[in-house]
Simulated assay, not measured.
Amino acid sequence: MGTFIGHVLPGCFFFLYGLWFLVRCSFICFYRRAGVDRSGSIRLWLPFRCCRRRRRSETESGLVRLSYEGLIVIACALIGFVGELATGNWQLYVVRESATHHPYVEYIHMNKFEHATMYAFFFLVGLVTVIDSMVSFQLQFPLGIDRVSFALAYAVEGLLFFYHLDGKSGLEVRVHVLLIYAIIGCVVATLLEIVFPTSLLCVTARSFCTVLQGSWFFQIAHVLYGSSPWEETSDNSRFVVMVFCWHIFGILVGSLVLFFSVSLVAMKCCSHRVDSRNEWSDRKLEEESLMLQLQQEDNSSV
């Protein structure tokens, strides 16, 4: 990851993944306000059907549901994992001899193995998400295991980047500390999702911090490995904090525009569904009021 591409690659993953969930949160928000969607907890995956099997009974669907997002996370994590270790020749240490001819172990490519460890935990997230979505195999996972795995992956990422700062320059330390703040936001929001699985605000907060991670990875690539890397000055160290605030402001404005745009699109494309739901609700209220009126007349006659 100590290259321009090494920071852009995870930046694309986090940015697109968080953006995808912001879009989903926008649609869920619209449907909930319209009274169409009254579902419970918000899933971290969308299913698709594959692996047609012979049915054993009338109730068995014969299809295995897998997770789109989980498979994409697995693929991205494998690409990052193999890319990091392949450029380091898969070698973690070498045995050298000291001046007194005593052998000792020297660890090499530490940055690459730290980043590979991060990718390995996100691979675990994708694997857990895929297995949790395979309902046809009667797998009984604890509720919220996907969010627990996500929180663990984010926490490990923050831990690795925290100790990644040893021996770094002041500007490099500053940009990575700001990245850790975004990671902490992801951890806190994901833990809150475990406690409040139906809260749209928690999912939106996690998605927001994930997009912030991705955009800040792009900024780190530009600051440290761009065509003209920033110089090590106190003004640049202060200015990069302001740039981080601009990222937060831009993502916040973009999220509001996204929610507004999705509401307009959903209102135009799904108006018939919303209208039918509202008509059904109105008829239900009329029936309940009529029943209540009849009960009151019966009571008065008695």
Score class of each variant (00 low, 15 high):
130 V>L: 09
131 I>D: 14
132 D>S: 14
132 D>F: 04
133 S>Y: 03
134 M>H: 07
136 S>I: 02
137 F>P: 00
137 F>W: 10
141 F>K: 11
145 I>S: 15
146 D>N: 13
147 R>I: 01
148 V>P: 01
149 S>L: 05
152 L>P: 03
152 L>C: 12
153 A>F: 00
154 Y>E: 12
155 A>E: 09
156 V>A: 13
160 L>T: 12
161 F>L: 13
161 F>E: 12
163 Y>W: 05
166 D>H: 04
168 K>V: 02
169 S>W: 04
177 V>G: 07
180 I>S: 09
180 I>T: 12
180 I>F: 06
180 I>K: 06
181 Y>Q: 09
183 I>S: 15
184 I>F: 14
184 I>R: 11
186 C>S: 14
186 C>F: 05
187 V>N: 13
188 V>I: 15
189 A>T: 11
192 L>I: 02
193 E>G: 05
193 E>D: 10
193 E>F: 01
194 I>F: 02
194 I>E: 05
199 S>K: 04
200 L>A: 02
202 C>T: 13
205 A>L: 10
208 F>I: 03
209 C>H: 10
209 C>K: 02
212 L>G: 07
212 L>P: 00
212 L>N: 08
214 G>T: 08
216 W>K: 02
222 H>P: 00
224 L>D: 10
229 P>C: 11
231 E>T: 07
232 E>P: 00
233 T>Q: 13
236 N>V: 02
237 S>Q: 14
240 V>W: 05
